[in-house]
Structure formats: C-alpha cells, structure tokens
Nucleic acid binder design. Structure first.
Lengths: 149, 149
DNA sequence: CAATTAATTGAGAGTAACTCTAATATTTTA
DNA sequence: TAAAATATTAGAGTTACTCTCAATTAATTG
C-alpha cells in the first residue's frame, strides 16, 4: 500500500509488517485482537495501517513474547504504556524481571547445548569407529529379573 | 519408595523424578503417555519404577523439549533409539540439527536481551531524572489528521 | 475500465503441549 | 489400622497460536 505523508512517514500493510518483523500475519492479527496494538489506525475501509511507530510496538511485543512473557503480562505492559508516565516504575520492573528471566533462559539453553554436543560427539565416535551404542539401554541385558519389590 | 537391588541400583517414584529433573509430575506422566519412556517398568500394583538409567532418558527428553524439539520429533528420536544401532545416522542428524537450532535460539534471545537492556536504561533514565516517556506514542501529538489515503 | 488476481478482514475451528481436576487405588506414617 | 500422603487414569481446561473460510477490498492487466 503506497501512501504519502510528510517526507518520512510510511504506511505498511499487515503483510509488510509480517515480513519486516518476521512474524506471521496470523500472529500479528492475533496480537492485534489481543489488544497489543491499541494505537493502530484503520482506513475508511477497515484495513489496518501500520506506521513506523507501530513497528516499534510490534518489536517490543515480539521481544516480550519471544522471551516467554505470557500474553496477559504483555497486555498489562501495553496497558501501562497507554496509561502513561505514572506507570513507569511498574513497567521498569516488568522489563528488569523479564531481563533476568531471559538471562536464565539463555543459561538453560547453553546447558542443554552441552548435552547436545556431548551426544553429537558420542554418535560421531560410534559412526567413525563402527562401534555399538553402548549407552542405549536397549542394548543392555534386561534388568527385569533383577527387580525385587 | 525404597527398593533393594544390587549395590548401585535405586528406584525412584515419579515424585522423586519430578524433583530431581525439575519437571512436573504431570509432565512426566504426559511424556510417559506420549511414549517417550517405553522402557519404564511398573510394580505389580501398576506404579512406575524409574531407575538411574531411566533418569538419563528423562534428561534427554527434557533437553530436546526445552530447546523446542516438538513432541512428534522427540517420539521419533526415542523410537530410533529403541530400534537400535541401525538408526545411529538419523539420530546423529537429529542431534546436530537440534544443536544448530539451539544456537540460533540463544542468538535470538541474546538479541532480545539487548532490547530489554535498552528499555531498562531508558526507564532508569526517566525515573532518575524525572523525565517524560518521550518514546511512548501516547505522549505524542495525534497523527490522525495527517493521514491521507 | 472491467475483469482477473492478490490481499485483507473477522469468525471460528484445529493443534500442541501442557496443566489441572477428580475419582480411585496404594503406600506410608502415626 | 486409620489417617495422610502419593500414585494411577481419563478427561476437561488453558495458552498461544495456526489454519480455513467466506466476504470485502485493493492492485494489476488486457
């Protein structure tokens, strides 16, 4: 959609937003329906008109969702933004809490990555040296007869 | 549940597994129902008996799920393990693909972390210097009258 | 400029992966 | 041995999409 304003003002269709932000159109609409973009304008024919400012909002919503903030909490954050300056402290807390949780997630992923790398080497070794998968309990003797309850 | 075997053989209840692996009992049962643990024994009274070997399987399932491998793919991996040595190559590919995706996820989270840190500083600045939230479009003039379609 | 073709819309069904509840059975503890 | 804690399954509920569909609306093209 081509629309002209003063110099540096563009309007994006939902498709363009989806491409630009790497989020599906469905998800953008779902987020819009969830009240995450209370500021988006519509054309007279009801079509959503995203401007560069709106993209910043899509960006922060995407950020919060990607790091696992649940929808209700995202909505809360958006609502606080709409209310304005009196809510800065609560928004600050949301952001710092989210930051800490994101750091923990990164740590968790890095730990799981270590296990994946161990497994990778383990399989590599089997493939390269034509070995048996000794770790797999399926290759071990059944322990059934040992069980005593 | 206390059960004796030879020296180094212990049995864990589902509760103990949940605590040890930091996964809810519900989730362990859900995974079991999904066929992720085809090797777990049961007592005569139908109670699941996890041994140390089983914990290793819970560990790899947890790993795959945490990094976002979907259930169907986890099941596939487990099935390949059960089939045995002939499936090493496919398992190797699953692990390396998952490793790459995990690295990408870590990168993505680190990028989002930068935005969160920017926001944190932004709010900090407002709080410390008693400023207005100039970024918030709610504080800007309405652009409504500028829109031309 | 009419007619395809492409994009947008909302409603609502479908899906994944839990998460929780409830009724019942089993185990542990006092 | 009675009460409290834990285990079991089935199945309902939840979250956050994801997809389909029919109806509009917009863009392209002969």
């Amino acid at each position: 959609m081509i629309i002209y304003f003063q110099e540096d003002f563009y309007i994006y269709t939902i498709k363009e937003v989806a491409e630009k932000m790497d989020v599906s159109e469905h998800t953008i609409r779902f987020w819009a329906k969830s009240g995450f973009f209370p500021f988006i304008k519509r054309s007279q024919t009801n079509i959503r008109l995203f401007d560069d400012n709106d993209l910043e909002w899509v960006k922060i919503v995407k950020c919060l969702r990607v790091v696992g903030v649940e929808s209700k909490a995202v909505k809360r954050y958006i609502d606080l933004c709409v209310i304005g300056d009196s809510t800065i402290e609560e928004r600050y807390k949301i952001i710092t809490d989210t930051k800490v949780k994101t750091q923990q997630q990164i740590k968790e992923l890095m730990e799981q990555l270590i296990l994946l790398e161990y497994k990778e080497k383990f399989y590599q070794n089997i493939i390269n040296n034509n070995l048996e998968d000794t770790w797999n309990p399926m290759n071990k003797l059944s322990v059934e007869e040992k069980v005593v309850i």
